[in-house]
């Protein structure tokens, strides 16, 4: 077996375009998914059964079925109800719902990790639920949220490759097109794997930096600096 580099070099434009489409799909779905995840997390933490029930149901439904089957349901079953749906819409919708369900679990966990006393103090000072969430809980939960969220964002990027099956022209689809002309699956898929690897590694690094800038970590850094000064 020989590894033919020309397969990659002569098709770099296809790979680049596919990479770009993957980036856009993942970016858009992550942002939409985070919004959805926040809503679902708040619904799950609410006192009302009418909000909690559907939220739990939605999360379980997504978590207990394969992403591929979800994609098929959205792409093939939803149109049966008369709604026309393009591969793009189906792809973004599938990734958003999928991401939203998993993100909501992390967000819920992060909210619950903020000590009760912090919200007690906010309420005792007359803050409303919304204000306490915005000013106290959200800034503090970031430090708890980022590590699990990083893993889930990486998962989202990886699973976006499945969208090639419904002809979304992302990286895996582009790779298959390369395959169509070169018949060199090992080279083509290795290149795709490498690109995904770079993407997920960059994502992990980026989230690591972001974690460093959460209010909690800023406070912690300040404290360490203070301690070093005090030691001297």
């Amino acid at each position: 077996m020989k590894f033919d580099l020309s397969v990659i070099t002569s098709n770099w434009q296809l790979f680049a375009r596919g990479f770009g489409v993957t980036l856009v799909y993942c970016g858009v779905s992550s942002i939409l998914g985070l919004c959805l995840g926040l809503v679902v997390a708040l619904a799950r933490l609410s006192r009302s059964v009418w909000l909690r029930g559907p939220a739990v149901g939605f999360v379980e439904l997504i978590r207990d079925t394969p992403f591929l089957v979800q994609v098929f349901v959205i792409f093939f079953v939803v149109p049966a109800s008369g709604l026309t749906i393009s591969a793009t819409t189906a792809g973004i919708a599938a990734l958003t719902l999928y991401g939203g369900a998993y993100f909501s679990e992390s967000i819920r966990g992060a909210i619950l990790s903020v000590p009760r006393g912090q919200t007690d103090a906010a309420h005792a000072a007359g803050m409303s639920h919304v204000l306490a969430m915005r000013r106290i809980v959200f800034p503090q939960m970031m430090a708890y949220l980022i590590p699990p969220l990083t893993n889930q964002l990486i998962g989202l990027v990886k699973d976006s490759s499945v969208l090639s099956i419904i002809t979304v022209p992302e990286l895996t689809m582009a790779t298959q097109r390369v395959l169509g002309t070169t018949f060199a699956p090992i080279e083509a898929f290795s290149m795709a794997a490498l690109l995904y690897w770079v993407l997920t590694a960059c994502l992990a690094a980026l989230m690591g930096r972001l974690e460093h800038h959460t209010p909690t970590h800023r406070a912690a850094r300040q404290t360490t600096a203070f301690l070093t000064v005090a030691d001297r």
């Binding site: 000590p115 006393g117 912090q118 007690d120 103090a121 906010a122 309420h123 005792a124 000072a125 007359g126 106290i136 800034p139 503090q140 209010p215 909690t216 800023r218 406070a219």
Partner: peptide, 18 residues
């Protein structure tokens, strides 16, 4: 009404990120 009643907690409950 809570805004008119101050409270000091056993564990201070200062907001740690501020």
């Amino acid at each position: 009404m809570r805004a008119r009643v101050g409270m000091v907690f056993q564990n201070f409950n200062l907001w740690t990120h501020m």
